[in-house]
């Protein structure tokens, strides 16, 4: 029963990671491509790590709380790197399917 929960979490996490990467290939410009990796892949990794923690716990390896450290770190850093990549793309005036905002607001 608990093994089932852990397997479901791992499978869900892996499919979310895959969907994020498919978004990276499928979407038309850099700004839309950002959405897949930042949100979907990060959530997928969270699910995968929770499943792995659960499994380790069932194996009697003790409560593997340190996986939580990776989850916390990824959820803190994913928006930062997405913001910086978006900013760099705007700075380089990368093409967008929806038209770029005007330049004046740049800091």
């Amino acid at each position: 029963m608990f093994e089932f929960v852990s397997a479901i979490l791992i499978l869900l996490g892996a499919s979310f990671a895959l969907i994020g990467s498919i978004g990276l290939v499928r979407f038309p410009d850099i700004y839309t491509r950002l959405h897949g990796p930042t949100k979907v892949t990060t959530l997928g990794l969270g699910g995968l790590l929770l499943g792995s923690m659960f499994y380790m716990f069932l194996q009697g390896e003790g409560v593997a709380v340190r996986e939580l450290l990776i989850i916390g770190f990824l959820f803190l850093t994913a928006p930062v790197s997405a913001h910086l990549v978006a900013k760099a793309a705007l700075h380089r005036r990368c093409q967008s399917v929806c038209g770029l905002p005007d330049r004046d607001a740049e800091s």
């Binding site: 700004y31 950002l34 994913a78 928006p79 913001h83 978006a86 900013k87 905002p101 607001a105 800091s107």
Partner: peptide
């Protein structure tokens, strides 16, 4: 705020204006 906006509904924060009054957000 910028981090939360990036992680939630189809939006990524792209830039903060120089006077810190506007956040440029890309919506999917």
């Amino acid at each position: 705020l910028a981090g939360t906006v990036s992680l939630t509904p189809g939006t990524v924060s792209a830039q903060l204006s120089a006077d810190r009054r506007h956040l440029l957000v890309h919506v999917l």
